[in-house]
Amino acid sequence: MVPRITIFILLSFFISCDYYIVKDYKEHVGLISKSEESDNPDFNPCFKEKIFPYYYGRQTAEYAKGKDVLSNYFHEHYKNFGNTHESGFITFRFIINCKGEAGNYEIRQVGLDFKKKSFNRETVDYLFSLVKTLQDWNTVEFFGDKYDCFYHLTFKITNGELLEILP
């Protein structure tokens, strides 16, 4: 245990040298370094050193069968488990590797006011299980070479009803 006097001296030292804490941006905004959710342990990005945003390249990354197929799939299978009072955005962020596989998921939930909220766990888990089944993606491509990218799917829910799949 560090004695209290040590902390006092340290603080006095920093204050006298005029130090303050600033935000530390260590990597590109949006990069998912570790998955927080249960994931496929065999998933690996092809190039850990550089993962592009999904909108880079001549052709942006997207679901290989098209957004229309994606949209129909979710509208067909979506369930709200009786929760008709919840509204907001559930976003699944993940990495698509150069082989078109998806993994390293991160889940974010905000209300319609863009403030953090928690949706019903059943709904989120069910949507997550649907998202994880999608494994055929077109990733970013430069001059015929494919690279890893991070992507996101956002589900806009209003009064328990799935309205839109964004972006």
Binding site: V29, G30, P53, F89, T91, R93, R108, F114, K115, T154
Partner: peptide, 13 residues
């Protein structure tokens, strides 16, 4: 902007 494009809406807002 980078937060909006990355789907991180709380930070964007």
């Amino acid at each position: 902007l980078p937060y909006l494009y990355a789907g991180m809406y709380e930070e964007w807002n």
